[in-house]
């Protein structure tokens, strides 16, 4: 199988995987296929040994990635997996993925690009649609951040990196105690995760999206904590320390410290002051996505049904995003 694709250039490297830019090899009698693909090479040697030297086999994150990508690839806003093959020579598993040249992090950092409200809406809408598809099929992404939102040459935004995703089966009641709270990149971690909850649900993704949207507006990470403790403190400072009143049973969470400094919860006016240029409905959406209590936080369906999505102006055309990207 490995002869079908050629790796051309290294694009990036993670702990267990290297991503290459590649192309389909020309076969005899077949027309030449010029389209680029991304090849994610997952090294088996590296993950083979645990601390005790036992053979660990394939890492669970690789299995998850393959499993969820195969299940979800039909959706527009999710990265496409074309093929999977194992390579004996390099002892690795290779995922052939759609090549997407841009990601939201790069787009946000490129200060020469100015988004208007329609462009913002287009991006928000596409993220919500992608996540809606996951949640509909009972999958939590658990690592939503700008760097994992890739943008294709056609202006479509696609969720990628399903290494931490998992199914939330049995309505979430049986598998509950098995969830680990060590997920999601720190800056986008929901408060219940930081408080050590192991029974969280889809709402942690909503929190991450809320912060991504704000980052899109202000062009810098909104809550950049230095470590998990600092992150929690920062969240409370900016969004108010939750009390038993607005988050029932919060004290029951493992990391809840009763000696917390009680920062006041910002009211609507305060929110308004922080985000002057956005519409009232947009502000409602943000406030509801960053609701501390997961029970009160909107779910993905409610977010997509929000007035902000339906109000005018309509989201701009995808081509607009392409134009911005190439500027």
């Amino acid at each position: 199988m490995s002869e079908l694709f050629v790796k051309e250039k290294k694009l990036g490297e993670g702990t267990f995987a290297i991503v290459y830019l590649g192309k389909k090899k020309q076969q005899e009698g077949e027309p030449k296929d010029e389209a680029y693909v991304a090849i994610k090479e997952i090294k088996l040697d590296l993950m083979k040994q645990s601390d005790t030297g036992d053979n660990m086999g394939i890492d669970i994150s690789a299995i998850r990635e393959i499993k969820y990508l195969q299940e979800l690839k039909a959706h527009d806003n999710i990265i496409k997996l074309y093929d999977v093959y194992s390579d004996m020579k390099t002892n690795s598993i290779n995922l052939i993925l759609e090549y997407l040249p841009m990601d939201l992090e790069k787009l946000i950092k490129k200060k020469t690009i100015i988004f208007n409200s329609m462009d913002i809406k287009l991006i928000v809408l596409q993220i919500l649609r992608g996540v809606n598809h996951l949640h509909r099929l009972c999958i939590i992404h658990r690592d939503l951040k700008p760097a994992n939102l890739l943008i294709g040459e056609n202006g479509l935004i696609k969720l990628a990196d399903f290494g931490l995703a998992r199914t939330y089966d049995d309505g979430g009641i049986n598998s509950h105690s098995n969830l680990t709270n060590n997920v999601v990149t720190r800056w986008y971690k929901a408060p219940e995760l930081l408080l050590g909850s192991k029974n969280y649900d889809f709402k942690i993704d909503i929190w991450s999206i809320g912060l991504i949207i704000i980052e899109l507006l202000i062009r810098v990470p909104y809550l950049p904590g230095k470590d998990d403790l600092d992150q929690l403190n920062l969240i409370f400072k900016v969004l108010g320390t939750p009390s038993e009143k607005d988050w029932p049973q919060v004290k029951a969470l493992p990391n809840y410290n009763t000696n917390l400094y009680m920062y006041p919860k910002p009211n609507r006016q305060e929110w308004r002051k922080r985000f002057i240029a956005i519409s009232d409905n947009f502000l409602d959406l943000l406030m509801s996505m960053l609701e501390m209590n997961p029970g009160e936080r909107w779910d993905i369906v409610r977010c997509l049904e929000s007035e902000y999505i339906r109000e005018f102006p309509r989201p701009s055309d995808q081509m607009e995003l392409v134009r911005l990207m190439n500027e």
């Binding site: 009972c138 939330y168 049995d170 309505g171 979430g172 009641i173 509950h176 219940e192 909850s197 192991k198 029974n199 969280y200 649900d201 709402k203 988050w247 029932p248 049973q249 919060v250 004290k251 029951a252 969470l253 209590n293 997961p294 029970g295 009160e296 936080r297």
Partner: peptide, 17 residues
């Protein structure tokens, strides 16, 4: 309490199941 803290809601559990 740990379920309540995570926004446990009987109806949504049935809905999900």
């Amino acid at each position: 309490s740990k379920y309540v803290a995570n926004g446990f809601n009987e109806k949504s559990i049935y809905d999900r199941l």
